[in-house]
Amino acid sequence: MLKINNLHVKLEAEDKAILKGVDLTIEPGTVHAIMGPNGSGKSTLSYVLSGRDGYVVTDGTATLEESDILDMEPEERAAAGLFLAFQYPVEIPGVGNMTFLRTAVNSQRKARGQDEMSAADFLKVIREKAKTLQIDADMLKRPVNVGFSGGEKKRNEILQMAMLEPKMCILDETDSGLDVDAMKLVSDGVNALRDAGRSFLVITHYQRLLDHIKPDVVHIMADGRIIKSGGPELALDVEQNGYADLLAEAEAQ
């Protein structure tokens, strides 16, 4: 599904390398998790994959189902099936949440040569999905993320993901700022989308999210590299012992 090869990224504004050779292969239908200390480059990886300005790829490749995504515009990556649930969802005053979602869904359909979804069909689908995420009619009407609580913003990200039905979903700290109930809602939303043709990359700080969204592979990222990969037990190890031992071990190599 997603194949990242020796990815090196620096900032555009200053000569500072952030990603220093990331290698990652995610097979269709699998869930990968990335954990790592603050500032290790997890968000940067998600931004570079989704096409945010401000970063320069100095080396390496990233392909989504064999197509090179690093040369694509952000909207083309989205249409190709990539989705990023933001760590900090953006507020857009003046644009209704519903309008935003309908525009997004139809833009992607158009890009793929499909017919636009009718207003009635769209309404039916969104109501159903919003309900399972406990997003009420008011939240759909309000401007995108404006005045939303932290948890509401994260639920809204998952609603977008559910509506857009991407193949490759990247979740950047979707658990941050969520209480136990909200975490359950969000995880259920994600789990409902799991299927053989869809992959997930779950970036998180805490093991607790991984109790709900069970990963197949766990990676540890530090200083712009993946320093260790393993099974779900790696996340438990981090939870109990912290990163110190892992970092020292990587240092020693």
């Binding site: 096409g51 857009i92 935003f100 525009t103």
Partner: peptide, 25 residues
């Protein structure tokens, strides 16, 4: 707002349409 523009584009809305949407808003 470049963050808003990127957010819209990351959801598949082409740059021109995303800009127009932000102008209208």
């Amino acid at each position: 707002d470049m963050d808003a523009l990127y957010y819209l584009r990351s959801r598949g809305v082409p740059k021109k349409e995303a800009t127009d949407l932000l102008v209208l808003s």
